[in-house]
Design a protein around this nucleic acid. Sequence first.
DNA 1: TCAATTTTTGAATGTCAAGTCAATTTATTA
DNA 2: TAATAAATTGACTTGACATTCAAAAATTGA
Lengths: 195, 195
Amino acid sequence: MSLMERKTAEKKNKILNSALIVLAEKGYHGTTMEDIANHLLMTKGSLYYYFKGKQDLVFQSQIRILHQSMENVKAVNQEDLTIEEKLKRVIIKHIDYSLTEKAGFLLMINPAEIFSKEQLTEIYRLREAYAACYDKLIAAGVEAGFFDVEHIPVARNVLLGAMNWVTQWYSPEGALSKTAFAQLVTDYTIRIVKK
Amino acid sequence: MSLMERKTAEKKNKILNSALIVLAEKGYHGTTMEDIANHLLMTKGSLYYYFKGKQDLVFQSQIRILHQSMENVKAVNQEDLTIEEKLKRVIIKHIDYSLTEKAGFLLMINPAEIFSKEQLTEIYRLREAYAACYDKLIAAGVEAGFFDVEHIPVARNVLLGAMNWVTQWYSPEGALSKTAFAQLVTDYTIRIVKK
DNA sequence: TCAATTTTTGAATGTCAAGTCAATTTATTA
DNA sequence: TAATAAATTGACTTGACATTCAAAAATTGA
């Protein structure tokens, strides 16, 4: 990768960051290309030099979130912990990350309203891979006698629902930090699969 | 209420019904006033005879959903059941209703992106009243020794999250009916508060 | 330095959908 | 039936925003 290519890549990154910040505040439809450009002290014309359009820009930010989520799980899986501890850590990480990247997670709600068919295919592929990580952990936990789950995909979706909904009701004004809060929430969500 | 007033009320109702159907398919931003009018075999101009505008129309449909949800809980509370059975029934009803009125429930996700400040106040008021019903049931269940919950609002939000997320992953193509499906999901969600 | 290349700009364009309204049609009632 | 009121129409206005692009500015490297 040449110097210039790296510079371009970094610029793209900066744009994606700003996009996520503005999206978090105004939502997809409330965010204009101009809003994003202004946040970067640029004009909107420039954005089209780096991205095909708004859809493309937002799609790439979404992909980044999904990749990062997967990385988070992988990191936990490397650690030397019991299955239950692993699942707990994965949940905490997910909640913590979802609160940090609120906008990115809100985009997950109605992707079909925003993205093209091809983009949706890619998004669903990554989501399924992510869900599979949970299924594996739950299955291992059942095997090991920690968990009691008959319908793994159902329990996993219930679990992910409880987790993803947190962005709807967490208020940063509360006394707890994001991580402490995530810990507390996890104590209740983990019960969904516990024996 | 005069005959004509009742006729108007009924027409408004028909419009709200169609709005919810179209919204369920296309989402808020994907739905135009013309879409709603076409579904009623009218032209969009007529809609403005009954409603101030799109925001007003959608707001009223949202209010209807919230009122109906509250009615559902009240109906269950009338029944002669244990606390645990009551909570289970409330959850099943909620899930069942949320799948029937998918669009109305999706509007709950980012209301601030759609509604005015005054409308939001009203929406939040109704939501809180609804949440309070759950809190009461949970508290009574703790009292009676069925449940084990230290932070009731947290557990309740975790519970509602698991429930509200169902619209995201339920597929009507599955083998189970909405109600049977709701039952299955409830078995896992109820664990959030169980001893 | 200076020519080539990359990047930025901002004005112009096109599209789409919300909302308006005078005119028309339909329903009501005296 | 005829006057009045209610309901509907569809063409029109308006504003917002994504996208384009030729020209200008900034950067690079020989």
